[in-house]
Deep mutational scan, measured.
Amino acid sequence: MEVRTIKVFTTVDNINLHTQVVDMSMTYGQQFGPTYLDGADVTKIKPHNSHEGKTFYVLPNDDTLRVEAFEYYHTTDPSFLGRYMSALNHTKKWKYPQVNGLTSIKWADNNCYLATALLTLQQIELKFNPPALQDAYYRARAGEAANFCALILAYCNKTVGELGDVRETMSYLFQHANLDSCKRVLNVVCKTCGQQQTTLKGVEAVMYMGTLSYEQFKKGVQIPCTCGKQATKYLVQQESPFVMMSAPPAQYELKHGTFTCASEYTGNYQCGHYKHITSKETLYCIDGALLTKSSEYKGPITDVFYKENSYTTTIK
Rank of each mutant, 00 (worst) to 15 (best):
P241I: 01
L121R: 04
E71H: 06
T258G: 10
V221Q: 03
L163Y: 15
Y252R: 00
A87P: 03
C285G: 08
L173H: 03
T10V: 13
L102V: 07
D62P: 07
L235R: 02
I277V: 11
I152Q: 03
T103P: 02
Y252C: 12
I223R: 01
K93Q: 12
T91P: 03
Q122N: 03
C225F: 00
N147L: 04
H276I: 05
E215S: 08
L37G: 08
N178F: 00
K46M: 15
Q222H: 02
Q197H: 03
T76Y: 08
H176L: 13
G267E: 15
V185S: 02
P249V: 14
Q197A: 10
Y172N: 14
C261M: 03
V21K: 13
Q230E: 10
K229I: 07
N147D: 15
G288V: 00
D77A: 06
H256V: 13
A142S: 13
R141C: 14
K298F: 13
S295E: 11
M207G: 01
C261D: 00
K92W: 03
I45G: 13
P241H: 05
M244Q: 00
M26H: 15
P224G: 08
S240H: 11
K229S: 14
T232L: 12
R184T: 05
Y172Q: 13
H51S: 03
Q175N: 08
F259W: 02
Y36A: 06
T302M: 04
V236Y: 07
S310P: 03
Y73D: 05
D63T: 13
S310W: 09
L133Y: 02
E296F: 14
T5I: 13
P34K: 11
A262D: 00
V22N: 03
V236G: 01
D41A: 13
K307T: 13
T258Y: 09
T312H: 09
G272H: 00
T278C: 11
E2W: 07
V189A: 10
N89S: 13
P130C: 06
Y72E: 04
E215H: 05
E253G: 00
T260S: 05
N309H: 00
A145W: 05
G82S: 14
T211V: 08
H74K: 07
M85A: 04
I15Y: 15
Y269A: 15
L200Q: 10
G164E: 01
T211P: 03
K275I: 07
D180F: 08
T64S: 11
D62M: 05
G288R: 02
Y137L: 10
H18D: 07
S86F: 05
P130Q: 05
K201T: 15
S171N: 13
Q134A: 09
N49P: 12
Y155A: 05
T11L: 01
I286M: 08
D63R: 02
T103A: 07
Q196N: 12
K54W: 12
A115H: 04
G164H: 04
R139L: 11
Y113C: 09
Y252G: 09
L235A: 01
Y311T: 13
D41V: 11
T55R: 10
G272R: 06
Y137I: 08
C285Q: 12
Y234K: 11
T75E: 08
K44C: 15
Y73N: 04
F70C: 10
T266C: 06
Y214F: 06
L37Y: 13
D165S: 15
P60V: 08
L17E: 07
L81S: 00
E52K: 14
R66T: 09
Y36E: 02
L88I: 06
M24L: 12
Y208P: 03
N187F: 05
V67A: 12
R141N: 09
G272A: 00
E253A: 12
A231G: 03
P130F: 01
L118T: 03
A145R: 02
T19K: 10
I286H: 00
C149S: 07
K233M: 15
L59A: 14
N129R: 14
Y155L: 05
C225M: 01
K106E: 15
Y155N: 07
T11I: 15
E215M: 02
N178C: 09
A142H: 14
C225I: 01
L37N: 11
T314G: 14
Y113I: 00
Q197Y: 05
Y155H: 07
Q123A: 05
V304F: 00
C227Q: 05
E2H: 08
R83S: 07
D303S: 01
K298V: 13
Q31A: 14
T312L: 13
Y84D: 05
S171W: 15
E125K: 07
K44H: 12
P60I: 07
Y28A: 05
E253T: 10
V203P: 14
Y113Q: 03
Q30V: 10
E144K: 09
D180W: 05
F9A: 14
K293E: 15
F174K: 06
A87H: 04
M245K: 01
P224K: 14
V21Q: 12
Y274D: 04
R66G: 08
H276V: 03
T91V: 09
M209A: 11
S310D: 11
P97M: 00
G33E: 02
E215V: 05
K95Y: 14
P300Q: 12
I6T: 11
V160W: 05
H18V: 08
D303A: 06
A145T: 03
E71S: 08
K316N: 15
Y234W: 07
Y172G: 11
V3Y: 11
F148H: 04
V99Q: 00
A132P: 02
N309C: 13
A87F: 00
S310C: 06
K92F: 07
S240L: 01
I105M: 04
D135P: 00
F259E: 00
E204N: 12
I301T: 03
M207V: 07
R184H: 02
Y214K: 01
E71G: 09
S294N: 09
N111L: 00
N100M: 12
E296D: 12
P241D: 09
V189I: 11
A142Q: 13
Y311H: 07
L153C: 04
Q98V: 14
G228H: 01
Y297M: 04
Q31T: 13
C285R: 09
P300H: 12
N89A: 11
I315Y: 15
S79D: 12
N16C: 09
T11K: 00
N14C: 11
F80G: 02
T314W: 15
Q175H: 12
F305K: 10
K191I: 15
D13M: 10
I105G: 04
F305E: 04
K280A: 14
P249K: 00
Q98A: 14
V21E: 14
I124D: 01
E281T: 09
M209T: 15
G288L: 00
T211R: 00
A150T: 01
V206H: 04
Q237W: 06
V236S: 02
Y36W: 15
T258N: 07
Y113D: 02
T91F: 02
Q196Y: 14
T76G: 13
Q175R: 13
L186Q: 09
T192S: 14
N268Y: 15
P47Y: 02
A205E: 00
M244F: 07
M24S: 12
T91A: 05
H18G: 08
N110T: 01
K307P: 13
I15E: 11
L102M: 15
